[in-house]
Design a protein around this nucleic acid. Structure first.
Length: 389
RNA sequence: GGGCAGGUGGCGGAGCGGUCAAUCGCAUCAGACUGUAAAUCUGACGACUUUAUGUCUACGGGAGUUCAAAUCUCUCCCUGCCCA
C-alpha cells in the first residue's frame, strides 16, 4: 500500500501556484509549506512542542551531521529519528550533498599548502569530518542506508551541488554525476524499502547550475525516475535572485504536475512567494532560525536588526498584529534586551517569531491561492516588504 | 605623619624617547547571513573637514629637558596597599 499520497486541492488562475496535500506515514502536510531546519535533530532553540504550537508540520534533519554524531546506527537502535527526538510529525532528511558543497568551499592549510576537505569521485565523495578531520566516504548507496536507518518520511538523493558561479562545463559534469547517482540511489532505495513496514519517499534533486539547457535536461531526467517528489537543488548558492527566478521559470513546465516540488535551501519571504508563484510546493531554509540567533527578524515592512538603537524603547511587539507567542506577550524593547544580554530566551523568542512569520506567509498564500487572489496578495506584500531596501 | 605602587580613549588594560590618535579585550554603533562547521562573521569607534601619506585637541594638572615626550625631570593634585 502506498503510504504517500499527493493531491492537488486548487490552482491559482494567474500564476503556477497550487495548493496541495501530501500524506506521509507521520501525517499530512499542507502545501505550499516551509520546513524549519533541524540539522542535528533539533530546530535550534525550540522544543518539538513549540514547533507544534507554531503549526510546523514537517521539519528537516541532516544525514551528514547525524552520521558523524551520534551515528545513524545509534539513532536506529534507539527507535529512529521520530522517536529519538520526540517529533511524531513528518521529517525530511537531506542527503549530505550540500555539506559536500559547503566543505568544498572551505580552505584548509596543511604542511604541503592548501588541502582540500573534499574529493569528489565517480563512486562517491571522500571527505574529512569538520569535527575531527577524520576521513569518510559517502556513496549514493551509503547515503541511502544512513537515511533508511534515520527513518525520515522523505529522504533525498545524494547530489553534487555545484556553486552558483560554476562554469558550464563544470555544471554539466556535476549534473551528469548527480543523474548517475540518482539512479543508484533509486536502485538502492528500492532494495532497502523491501524489508520496511514504514515507507520512505525518495526525492531526486535537479541540478544544472544557471544554464537553461542543463536545467531542462536535468528536470526531464529526474522526472523520468518517477519518484514520489522532485527537488530543485543548486540554487541560492551564490547566483543572483534574478538567475534563480529565471531558472525556476525555465523548468516550470518540465516539472511533474502530480508530484510535490521542493526548492531546496530557500528562503527569504520574497523568495518563498516568487517560488510559490512558479509552482514550488516545499521550501526549507536556515534563515529564519539562523538570522533569529543573529538578532534579525522579519515583519511585513522588511527585515530588521533587533540590536539597532531604534528598538531600545519600542513598546510595541516585533510586528504589530502578529499572532505569535513572542508578539502576543513581549515588547520589542524586552526582546532586544534579552538579545543584547545574550539571554537564550531571547534567541527562542526571535526564532519563534521568524518561523511563525514564514509559516503564516505560507498559510496566507494557500488561502489566497484557493481564493484565486494569490497574485494580487503577492504583489501587494512584496511592494510593501521591499520598500525598505 | 612615613613607606611603596599607580593615574592612558565609555570601561578594563598595553605602550615606557621618534614609525602613537595610541596593540588588545569589553561595551557601543552599523552591516552580512538562503538544502546550518554559524547564539556567527565583518566594519566603525577623539573632534573636524575639501575623507586625506589632511587639520586640530589628547595619555591626571602645571612647568621643564630634547630636534622630538604617553614615555625622562621637577612640582602639585588624586587613588590603592602597608606602617605609625
Amino acid at each position: 500500500m502506498n503510504q504517500f499520497k499527493f493531491k492537488i486541492i486548487s490552482k491559482d488562475p494567474n500564476t503556477s501556484a497550487r495548493v496541495s496535500e501530501l500524506s506521509t506515514p507521520h501525517g499530512k502536510i499542507n502545501l505550499p509549506t516551509f520546513m524549519p531546519v533541524g540539522t542535528k535533530a533539533t530546530v535550534k532553540t525550540l522544543s518539538p512542542e513549540e514547533l507544534k504550537d507554531l503549526n510546523a508540520n514537517i521539519i528537516l534533519a541532516n544525514t551528514y551531521h547525524l552520521y558523524l554524531r551520534p551515528g545513524s546506527d545509534t539513532i536506529k537502535k534507539l527507535g529512529g529519528l521520530h522517536k529519538w527526538m520526540n517529533w511524531r510529525n513528518p521529517i525530511l532528511t537531506d542527503s549530505g550533498g550540500f555539506q559536500v558543497f559547503s566543505l568544498a568551499q572551505q580552505k584548509r592549510f596543511g604542511k604541503n599548502g592548501e588541502k582540500k576537505l573534499v574529493k569528489i569521485l565517480e563512486d562517491g565523495v571522500e571527505f574529512r569530518s569538520h569535527i575531527d578531520g577524520s576521513k569518510h566516504f559517502f556513496t549514493p548507496e551509503k547515503v541511502m542506508k544512513i537515511q533508511s536507518d534515520l527513518g525520515a518520511d522523505i529522504i533525498m538523493a545524494f547530489d553534487e551541488c555545484a556553486p552558483g558561479d560554476s562554469t558550464y562545463a563544470y555544471a554539466k559534469k556535476a549534473m551528469n554525476r548527480t543523474h548517475r547517482w540518482a539512479e543508484r540511489c533509486k536502485k538502492e532505495h528500492i532494495k532497502l524499502q523491501k524489508s520496511k513496514k514504514i515507507k520512505q519517499a525518495l526525492f531526486p534533486i535537479v541540478q544544472g547550475g544557471i544554464y537553461d539547457d542543463l536545467r531542462i535536461e536535468s528536470t526531464k531526467f529526474m522526472k523520468k525516475l518517477n519518484l514520489p517528489g522532485i527537488a530543485i537543488g543548486g540554487l541560492s548558492v551564490g547566483e543572483t535572485k534574478k538567475q534563480m527566478y529565471h531558472t525556476l521559470d525555465i523548468i516550470k513546465d518540465y516539472l511533474p504536475e502530480d508530484k510535490p516540488r521542493y526548492l531546496m535551501g530557500v528562503g527569504s519571504p520574497e523568495d518563498l512567494l516568487e517560488g510559490i508563484s512558479r509552482g514550488i510546493d516545499m521550501f526549507d531554509c536556515v534563515m529564519a532560525t539562523r538570522n533569529a540567533r543573529h538578532g534579525s527578524f522579519w515583519t511585513k515592512d522588511g527585515r530588521f536588526q533587533l540590536r539597532n538603537k531604534e528598538f531600545k524603547e519600542k513598546k510595541e511587539p516585533l510586528m504589530k498584529g502578529c499572532k505569535c507567542y513572542t508578539c502576543k506577550n513581549y515588547s520589542t524593547s524586552y526582546v532586544r534586551h534579552l538579545y543584547m544580554e545574550k539571554e537564550t530566551f531571547g534567541l527562542r523568542l526571535i526564532t519563534i517569531h521568524n518561523i511563525n512569520f514564514l509559516l503564516d506567509l505560507m498559510n496566507k498564500s494557500r488561502m489566497h491561492i484557493k481564493k484565486g487572489t494569490f497574485n494580487a496578495f503577492k504583489n501587494k506584500f512584496l511592494k510593501h516588504y521591499l520598500k525598505k531596501s
